[in-house]
Simulated assay, not measured.
Amino acid sequence: MNERPYGLKDGGLTDDGLTDDGLAEEAALWVARMQSADATEAEREAFHVWLRADAAHASAYEDMQSLWGELGDIELAPAEQPKRRGPRRAVLAGVAGLCMIGLAALFAENSGLKDRWQADYYTEIGETRVLALEDGSRISLNTDTAIAVHYSQDERRITLLRGEAYFDVTKNPERPFIVTDGSLTAKALGTHYSVRAGSGALPQEVQVEEGRVEVTTDTDVAVLTPGETVTLDDNGRLVRARKDVANSMAWREGKLVFSGQPLREVLDTLSQYRRGRIVILDEAAARQHVSGIFDLKDTDQALIILEESLPVSVSRLSNMLVFVRSR
Rank of each mutant, 00 (worst) to 15 (best):
D21T: 12
R327W: 15
R138C: 02
I278R: 01
N247R: 13
I139T: 00
K243P: 03
A165P: 14
W50S: 00
L296F: 12
V314E: 02
E75R: 06
S271I: 07
Y166D: 04
D233A: 04
R88N: 13
L8A: 05
Q118D: 15
R85I: 08
G69I: 07
E124S: 11
S183N: 11
E109A: 09
P173D: 05
A285T: 03
T219G: 11
I278S: 02
G236T: 05
S137E: 02
K114Q: 11
T143L: 06
L29D: 05
P87I: 07
E80H: 04
S315W: 11
S183W: 07
T225Q: 14
W251D: 10
M249Q: 11
G198I: 09
L263I: 06
L92I: 07
V149S: 04
P82V: 00
A222C: 12
A93Y: 07
K243C: 11
C99E: 02
L321V: 12
E253C: 09
A201E: 14
A197T: 06
A241M: 06
W68Y: 09
L76C: 13
E70D: 14
A146D: 01
A77Q: 13
V221L: 10
G198W: 13
D220Q: 02
E283F: 06
A119Y: 00
L296H: 13
N172C: 04
Y193V: 01
L267V: 08
S313L: 08
G276W: 02
A222T: 07
A77P: 15
G198A: 12
S66E: 10
G72I: 01
N110E: 14
L224N: 08
E308S: 13
D120E: 05
Q65D: 11
F107I: 05
P173K: 02
E134G: 09
G22W: 00
T219P: 02
V322C: 05
E134V: 12
G97T: 06
A186G: 09
S259N: 15
F47P: 10
W251S: 08
H150I: 09
E124Q: 11
V257W: 02
T145P: 00
E214F: 15
V257L: 07
A24F: 04
I280W: 01
H57E: 03
V279N: 04
V195Q: 15
R242I: 12
I280M: 14
E174K: 07
E307F: 02
L238I: 04
A186M: 03
W251Y: 15
R44Y: 14
V149K: 03
W251Q: 07
G7P: 14
Q272H: 10
G276D: 09
L76P: 15
A148Q: 03
E210N: 08
E127C: 02
L256H: 01
L13K: 03
S111Q: 08
E25K: 06
R156D: 02
Q153P: 15
D16A: 08
L310H: 08
T145G: 01
V239H: 09
I178Q: 01
Y273P: 08
Q118W: 14
L29T: 03
G236I: 01
Y122W: 03
S183Y: 05
D135E: 04
L18F: 13
G94R: 03
R237F: 10
K171C: 03
M64Y: 12
